[in-house]
Amino acid sequence: MAFTKTFDAYVPSNGPDFFALSKLKPDYVPFTTLQAVVIDPAAKADSFAYAKRLTPPAVFAHVLRCFYFALALMYTGFPSGTPGVAQIGFEELSLRLYHTSLLHDVGWSNSTEALNHPAHAMTFELHGGIMAYEHLHAAAPNLDAFQVGDIVESIVLHTSQWSSGNSSANQFLLSVSTFFDAGGYNGTGVAGLDFHRLWNPKTVAEIEQAYPRVDMHNQVISILDKEFAQKPNCLLSHYPGGLDAIAKDVRVGPIVPVSSRIDRAVKDDHLHSSG
């Protein structure tokens, strides 16, 4: 099995319509397969360094997990070849997705650079989107207006949901992956989506082993406490149940508990895990 060469460039924003188009199955995808995806080295280095410098450590691990969760969906049946829908190539979507994933939480930075930025009083999605826009124009001038537009819009809209209409493939992949990484299989996500139908637990476990969750819950809730206090009209204030609901939704531990990972239970060197 290999990655599809092209994908629908736009997909339905709501879960039931999305599932009607997709062929997604929660098949196991080795992390090594996802890790082998080649992103333009210069572009990858620039956004990686920028995000790592600005994003709190546990959140930086989150943005990396989001990228690989999204890649896994591209491997296991993300909509492709739908009649009448424009197609986007694998390399192009992967490139946009990398920038989008790595940069989507720079608005959560507590660095002097971010706090002194003219957009710092905006909701973090807009703040981060504007910083990403400026970064890409400086560090990746080869990206055109359509590429930058999709990346930045996807960052700005990644916490928003709609019951109708379309999202770019890039924006949908980022949004569903961020909600999944935050809340896990039973968390609140895109309306009408069942995360159990999207990701294989073994794939999830391998991604979490590569980029552990560590203190993500406390870092995220601390950031959001400040966001809600300083910006009562922030985009996440529209989340059903508000900050209290988000605090309950964000996982404290890994999505796949370490104790349930079969490889850790194998003691006999002559035995191996199945699947």
Rank of each mutant, 00 (worst) to 15 (best):
N116F: 03
M74I: 05
L126Y: 13
H158E: 02
P83M: 03
D150L: 01
H120W: 00
S80E: 11
V156F: 04
L71Y: 08
T76D: 05
A114G: 08
R96N: 15
S164T: 14
G89W: 04
S164Q: 07
S164W: 12
A114W: 07
A132C: 11
T82I: 03
A139I: 01
L102H: 08
G165Y: 06
G77V: 12
L115C: 04
A169E: 08
E91I: 00
I88R: 09
L126D: 13
D105T: 13
A114D: 05
A121E: 10
L73I: 05
E92Y: 00
N116L: 08
F146M: 06
T112L: 09
I130Q: 13
T112M: 11
F172A: 09
V156E: 02
T112A: 14
Q87D: 08
N166Y: 11
T123W: 03
N170Y: 10
V156A: 00
L97R: 02
P79C: 04
L93Q: 14
M74Q: 08
A119H: 03
S160A: 14
E91D: 13
A72G: 14
A139S: 15
L93R: 05
G165N: 02
A119R: 00
E134K: 13
T100P: 03
L102T: 07
Y75V: 07
V106R: 10
N116G: 13
E91H: 04
P83T: 06
W108D: 07
H120Y: 07
T159D: 02
A121M: 05
A132F: 12
S80M: 01
H158G: 00
S111G: 04
A72Y: 03
P141W: 04
D150V: 12
G81L: 06
H135I: 02
F78A: 03
L157Y: 02
G77I: 06
V152M: 06
L173D: 12
T112P: 01
Y75T: 03
I130D: 08
A138E: 15
S154T: 09
I151D: 11
I151P: 12
A138L: 10
H117G: 10
G77H: 06
E92K: 08
F90M: 04
F172E: 00
A138T: 14
Y75Q: 15
S111K: 11
L126W: 11
S168W: 08
R96M: 14
H158R: 06
D105E: 14
S109L: 11
H99F: 15
T123C: 10
L103K: 07
D150R: 03
E91N: 12
H120P: 00
P83K: 02
F172D: 01
L173C: 09
S167C: 00
F90C: 01
N170G: 14
A86D: 13
E153P: 00
G165H: 03
E153C: 07
G128K: 09
V152D: 13
E125D: 09
G149M: 05
A169L: 04
T82E: 05
H117D: 15
E91V: 03
L97M: 08
A70Q: 12
